[in-house]
Design a protein around this nucleic acid. Structure first.
Length: 351
DNA sequence: GGATCCTTCTTCTTCTTC
């Protein structure tokens, strides 16, 4: 019985009609559609990532207990019903296909005179109107499958670490992410890269970020002409905002760059979940924000590892960005709909 | 001064047989 249900559920996930997110991930990551015996990790340089893999495997949660299986089963039961619900259109299309690029500014090839990166601080102040952030929209429009796996993961972690242990584990992950971001920010604003800095002046990082910085060292060598760092972007017509990590040229291509830390190796774009949608959302906002007189068509997601193994850099060309932009528009539509239906029926249950 | 905001992360079959 268990097995049957589980197979059905997996079928629900794989079914292309599940969610727009899943569809876009599949389109971007054919590894997931390859024959089942072919693991997406099989082409990873296992020797190079051996210590990372070892650390992941050693912290792996032990097999399930009847208790967790039962709880899981309860969770599984729901999605199966959902997967059999009236078929959603196979490929949803945004109601309004707002352009990713703005027609106001042409694509620039020259760098501006001033070499100082822009940093527009977030100012929520006076504006009474509600402007949701990219993170908030993405968090509140997760697919049922994503919610299921995240909750299952959380449950497992708590069963292993305890409530308090899990809390400090999560806080530590956030802390490392923040430290890493500010270290990257420092090195990029100082104009120094690991390539052109004097070895004797190589900056000293906090021990927690040393490995991450080593991980991205070769990628930093290819980052030039930094235009913006930790800067607010806002899409006026679509009414959302966010803060971009970085806008710079990577191997000569102007990109919105997103720096990520990860415990697990993420060798494929498909391993990065909503990150590409996030990057497309930022780029789309920047392209339609009058504070930035240029446009960015490309994206880059850099996944850094604590043990110093080489980071994975996932480039998003303009075609991919347009695809993820559509996914973003759908998520934004869902968010708006959710909010308006919630507002119109105050008694309606919260998810 | 306190509250809130934007981020920072976390998921993807699963272990048996060669």
């Amino acid at each position: 019985m268990f097995i049957l249900k589980r197979v059905l559920f997996v079928g629900g996930i794989i079914a292309p009609q599940s969610t727009s997110l899943t569809v876009s991930h599949f389109s971007a990551c054919h590894c997931l559609t390859s024959p089942k015996r072919h693991s997406p990790y099989s082409s990873v340089d296992s020797e190079r990532y051996s210590s990372l893999v070892k650390s992941v495997m050693s912290s792996r949660v032990s097999s399930q207990t009847p208790e967790t299986l039962q709880v899981e089963d309860e969770h599984i039961y729901g999605p199966v019903v959902k997967a059999q619900m009236p078929t959603q259109t196979q490929k949803r299309v945004p109601k309004t296909l707002h352009p990713f690029l703005s027609s106001e500014w042409t694509l620039e090839t020259e760098e501006p005179e001033s070499g100082t990166p822009v940093r527009i601080l977030l100012n929520r102040g006076q504006g009474r109107s509600f402007v949701p952030s990219v993170t908030r929209v993405l968090q509140q429009t997760l697919s049922p499958e994503q919610i299921f796996y995240l909750e299952r993961w959380k449950r497992r972690m708590i069963s292993e670490l305890g409530e308090e242990g899990f809390k400090s584990y999560s806080q530590n992950l956030f802390r490392q992410g923040k430290l890493f971001h500010s270290a990257v920010e420092d090195i990029l604003t100082s104009g120094a890269t690991l390539a052109n800095s004097n070895p004797s002046e190589t900056p000293e990082y906090a021990p927690e970020v040393q490995g991450y910085m080593e991980s991205i060292s070769s990628i930093l060598e290819d980052v030039r002409a930094v235009r913006a760092i930790e800067s607010t972007v806002q899409h006026g017509p679509l009414n959302y905002l966010g803060i971009v990590d970085c806008v710079a040229r990577y191997r000569g291509v102007l990109c919105v760059i997103d720096w990520k830390t990860s415990e697990k190796p993420k060798p494929f774009l498909g391993n990065t979940y909503d990150n590409p949608v996030q990057v497309a959302a930022y780029a789309g906002a920047l392209n339609n924000d009058e504070n930035y007189k240029y446009q960015v068509e490309n994206g880059l997601i850099v996944v850094a590892y604590k043990d110093g193994s080489p980071a994975h850099a996932h480039q998003l060309n303009s075609e991919l960005m347009s695809e993820y932009w559509k996914t973003w528009l759908l998520r934004l539509e869902d968010f708006t709909e959710q909010r308006s239906s919630h507002a119109s029926s105050p008694s309606s249950e919260k998810r």
